[in-house]
């Protein structure tokens, strides 16, 4: 369903109403939709706003594993749970404590807490949802960062400057989705094979999924999308003819904790 298109219209309309300089091509303001003011920033024509749709009908554990592997291997994400060298194996509380993950899976009740019900659609029980940074349109992590090491690009990507990050971890407290990881120690020994084309991280900085900004710059799709065999769709929401927009218009989708006003840009078809 075109949730985003609606927000888009609401906002454009609202900003026009308030004379905030939005493109007045969108005149339509429906009654009772003023609350949209705190949501999306108006996306004007010609602007890019990246979004992802996870189609859980096409997703399964094998595909999910492939997506995770694709992401973590090219982005030099260390593996503390199952280290490349058995000599580096860690005792139980440590490997969970230090864990770094950009993309992983979890069950419905953990991915969407508060949306459980007594009797649930049976298929949901076994479904492992693919989770990653939502690149929220109204990101609390950006709001709290004291150095702008976490910031929002005009195309919607919530970026990180790992050379500026002071490791205060305010963003980890601020993110309501638990998608951020911290380097509690030097990650390099735990990276199976270092990809020389991508930086490794140092001790004491935060990291997360960056929507493959480095691949987008080369005109490529994100690595997880490429590995997903069509279960993931990625594209420009601001472009009326984009694939994501089409998929969103055709299907009912859900998002994680939309009531918090963060306006997540990862959508799920169940």
């Amino acid at each position: 369903m075109g949730i985003n298109r609606r927000d888009f219209i609401k906002l454009a309309g609202l900003s026009a109403l308030l004379g905030l300089g939005g493109k007045s091509a969108f005149e339509l303001v429906l009654p009772g939709e003023v609350e949209a003011a705190e949501k999306a920033k108006p996306a004007a024509e010609g602007i890019t706003r990246w979004a992802m749709v996870v189609d859980m009908r096409k997703m399964n554990d094998q595909i999910a594993a492939k997506c995770i592997e694709a992401c973590h291997s090219i982005h030099n994400v260390p593996n503390y749970i199952d280290p490349p060298d058995p000599k580096l194996a860690l005792p139980d509380p440590l490997k969970q404590r230090w864990q770094i993950k950009w993309i992983w899976t979890d069950l419905y009740e953990h991915a969407f807490p508060g949306m459980e019900q007594d009797v649930l659609w049976e298929k949901l029980h076994a479904m492992n949802f693919l989770l990653l940074c939502n690149h929220c349109n109204n990101p609390p992590c950006v709001r709290v960062c004291p150095t702008k090491a976490t910031y929002q690009r005009p195309d919607g990507i919530v970026m990180m400057d790992m050379h500026r990050c002071i490791g205060c971890r305010f963003c980890m407290a601020g993110c309501p989705y638990g998608v951020r990881s911290f380097n509690w120690r030097d990650p390099r020994p735990y990276i199976a094979k270092i990809n020389e084309d991508y930086p490794t991280r140092e001790i004491g900085v935060v990291e997360k999924c960056l929507f493959c900004n480095e691949r987008l710059a080369q005109g490529l799709q994100p690595a997880c999308v490429e590995a997903s065999g069509g279960a993931l769709t990625f594209g420009n929401l601001a472009d009326a003819k984009s694939k994501v927009r089409e998929v969103l218009k055709e299907h009912f989708t859900i998002r994680r904790k939309p009531h918090l006003g963060t306006n997540p840009q990862v959508y799920y078809i169940v």
């Binding site: 709001r143 709290v144 960062c145 004291p146 150095t147 702008k148 090491a149 500026r164 990050c165 002071i166 490791g167 205060c168 971890r169 305010f170 911290f182 380097n183 140092e202 001790i203 004491g204 900085v205 935060v206």
Partner: peptide
């Protein structure tokens, strides 16, 4: 702080929207 050596980034890049 994870990176105390960068402490002064708080002053170098003042960010009034951050409570910190």
């Amino acid at each position: 702080l994870g990176r105390p050596d960068r402490l002064f980034n708080i002053i170098k890049y003042p960010t009034p929207n951050s409570v910190l």
